[in-house]
Amino acid sequence: DVVEQLTPVPLDDLREESLQLVSKLKDCSSSCAVDVSAVWWEAAGCRELCVVTASESSVSLWKPLPAACWGRVYTWLFGEIPVIQIVPLPDTCNLVCIALGELEIGEIRLLLYSSENDSFKQSLVKTGNIKAVLGLKGRRLVSSSRTVQEQQVEIVSLSEAGRSKDGQTLMPPEETVLAFAEVEGMRDALVGTTAVNSVVVWNLKTGQLLRKMHIGYSYPASICHRAYSDAGLLFVVLSHPHAKESESCGNAAFRVIAFNPTTARSAAVTFSSLPPGHAGRQVPRGPRAGFVILGYLEGDVKDASAAAVLTSGAIAVWDLLLGCCVALLPPDPAGTWALARWATTTACLLAGQRDGTVCLYRY
């Protein structure tokens, strides 16, 4: 209701200047960049915000140098299974996880610096048919994995030295969990979205499945990114990368939905549409024929800001509370954007290209 009363921001007012290029990093050894992330790393008593870049066969750690340059600190190499995702662990230092697999995640590995023997190491955290994984505060990792008979939702705690401590199992819903999000303002709550378009809520302390709330078929293929608890309501940021364009759905890339966990009822708060000229295109063939790919490839949400790469090759930034696009980064002349990630805060945006170039923008 709120967003419908707002005047949309005209495209001319979307200022590229609100994203200021700070520095550029080029991984010359990388054949094809698959992910990028920011991570706190400490060396010689100095804690710095470093950048992690991933290609299919390697993951590199970069530290800031004077004159807006970046120096490679270390590169972890991997064998036959390709790297497909970096899994950052919030509020941690000298630790980052990665997911490896083909079409879906087959294993999760931890990359770390060990001060015990002054070396960079990697260790295996989990294997299986992993559908979703998320790094949680307090050096924990939650994942959903599936066997033929059952689904397992598990939390693994990691020690400072990177060793896996006792795991905890969460009660799984019947349907497959495809994404997780921590709930800001409620430390013991975790939400997930499922393959049949429900939002589920867990109690992390007890492992109980507290509530399953259907999102509605007008918002198909929803993925949760963030959740916030306030005034007895649960606000969940959802994206709809494969939504079918319709009167009810429009061309929204992100929505904020308010759920009342007591009654399982929900209401749309804001929706953030693709900027004009960047709307989706109809898929002519295949199982998704007739669907409209919304021009949203992949993105990241932090606090109340979302950033996503569009099929047009641009990166858009939205204010999710206002429900409007507030900045647009056109395709770089050297190549279109492939990755958009917030650093540890929304003050810094990491924009990546497939050739391994990562641009850091101050927002």
């Binding site: 109980q208 309501l233 966990p261 007591t262």
Partner: peptide
Amino acid sequence: CSESDLGPISLNWFEELSAEAPS
């Protein structure tokens, strides 16, 4: 969002659902 849309709102929903849910 109003209470008429969403039904009665409880500030203690997390504790209440935790007390009711199977463990």
